[in-house]
Nucleic acid binder design. Structure first.
Lengths: 282, 282
DNA sequence: CGGAAGTTGTAACGAACATTACATTTTGAT
DNA sequence: ATCAAAATGTAATGTTCGTTACAACTTCCG
């Protein structure tokens, strides 16, 4: 027997019809506020008829909608009175295998991010942010087999707030001519985690030899590129899976982007406005 | 200017009449549950007439009792969503002096991931994992402007453990012929967060019309695609930055991949070995 | 004691709401 | 393709609720 309404919702999600499920999703997403409104308002929000909301609540086992709301309020006061409600809620979550493992996975990711940031040097971050925000520098990004998606992600975002951003495409042959043109005004940000790719090291060496500044985001065991890199930001990547997790790397990338955006807000804002105009014209 | 309803109640306690004060005391004692009930019920509990309750609420400056309740709900969600960091709240409030540090950013990301997974339904995850692991299904992935990097990331990983994985490239024109060939044996996994892209909705509609199964990973406000989607996995994306964070989306993607890999380990392992051999030959 | 100002409850009204029955549409199986 | 079953929306109904007007009551000052 499920204890909380959240559990009840999650357990019965499969028995609901498609439309009822949309109601349930809204309740889960905006819990518990969505359920404290009137059924009519809730129905309007998910673009469903009022009876559908009521049927869903009835299928959860409640005698009436007011009954359902009363239960929500009771739960709420109980939850608010205990300070560590959040943790216990996550633990109480569910018994099914996949959910337990999904939660364990999430816990591992959370721990990775916390450890990652607790080990990062503020000085290192500041320097990287400064370089990425410097309009006099050209910025090149790339990653390995799995991490290249991150390089792409960051380059797309960075391009919005500044020019001179270049994502080195996958074909190694294309890199060469671009490296040839590099000098001290170029910044090369590389994502590289195990198993470290020799091709990335070769590129880093070539760029470094031409006075380009190499920045590295890697795992805690440090890619060999770290020896050439001006700044190194290591992240934790271990999770209960055969694969490694790139979530902490992404958190770093996003934190960098946020900082760059904030530090160069006037210029960034201007550029974003121009882009907006350009887009409307097309 | 009092921020919360509690403060407002305490400040105006002196101006209330004796009976009104009893109402206020009840509200303070059982906050905020007492205020989420109907005015009539609340009046009955403190043995006061309904108009007295309404007069008190009016004296607090609220236009109507529903107004008052709305405010309570808003306060409540704000309180529930960020129990651990008052710091981040202060920043969102708009103090320019307190600079958002990388740690605060990381805290927000961590909280996002925790909330995301605490709201995910086990049933939903199971079904998605099942579909992604089903070799009889073809899997297509794509995302929006920023989230397409995630689609790419997941497709690269998924391709290692199973065939029939397709990442729909950015040019919208290229989608069309691929959608034409879709039927009930196709699964379309879409990443779509605000600002939701109309082109993705169009594609989802076309695919859905051809009986392809649409899976959606979105933000907590749910992309319009959610109406067509067979399964929806919502994530939290708010961080102290002008940008949204995709970290929780990535965590979901990685959790899915881990589960699929585990559930179909024999087949996956075989394929990975074959790939390894193939790579050595090249 | 008398009267005015403030306080509180009663009662009536209208709006919003939950609920039900029913018609329509969709789905799935044969 | 055809039909039964399920799902969903529409419309009508009775209830609860918030709101307002007004009368009864209290308090306090002359």
């Amino acid at each position: 027997m499920p204890e909380t309404v959240v559990d009840q919702l999650r357990e019965n999600l499969g028995q609901f019809s498609a439309t009822e499920r949309r109601v349930a999703h809204r309740l889960l997403a905006e819990y518990p506020m969505a359920g404290l409104q009137s059924a009519t308002v809730l129905a309007r929000q998910v673009e469903v008829s009022t009876p559908t909301v009521l049927r869903m609540v009835a299928r959860l086992g409640f005698q009436s909608y007011p009954d359902f709301q009363r239960r929500l309020r009771e739960e709420l006061t109980a939850q608010l009175s205990s300070p560590l409600s959040k943790a216990s809620q996550a633990i109480r979550g569910g018994r099914k295998q996949s959910r337990t493992t999904a939660t364990e996975f999430a816990d591992a990711v959370v721990q990775n991010i916390q450890e990652t940031f607790s080990h990062l040097a503020a000085h290192e971050i500041d320097q990287v942010v400064k370089l990425l925000g410097d309009r006099k520098q050209r910025v090149h990004l790339l990653g390995g087999r799995f991490t290249d998606a991150l390089a792409r992600y960051l380059s797309v975002q960075l391009r919005i707030i500044r020019g001179g951003v270049n994502h080195l495409q996958d074909q190694e042959a294309n890199w060469q001519d671009q490296v040839l043109n590099m000098d001290h005004r170029d910044v090369l940000l590389i994502f590289d985690i195990r198993r470290y790719q020799p091709s990335l090291l070769r590129l880093a060496k070539a760029a470094s030899a031409r006075q380009a500044k190499v920045l590295l985001i890697t795992d805690q065991w440090l890619s060999p590129i770290s020896r050439l890199a001006l700044h190194v930001l290591p992240a934790r990547i271990s999770v209960p899976s055969v694969w490694d997790s790139n979530a902490a790397l992404m958190a770093i990338a996003e934190a960098l982007l946020a900082a760059v955006t904030r530090n160069t807000w006037e210029q960034s804002q201007r550029r974003m406005r121009d882009l907006e105009q350009l887009r409307e014209q097309l």
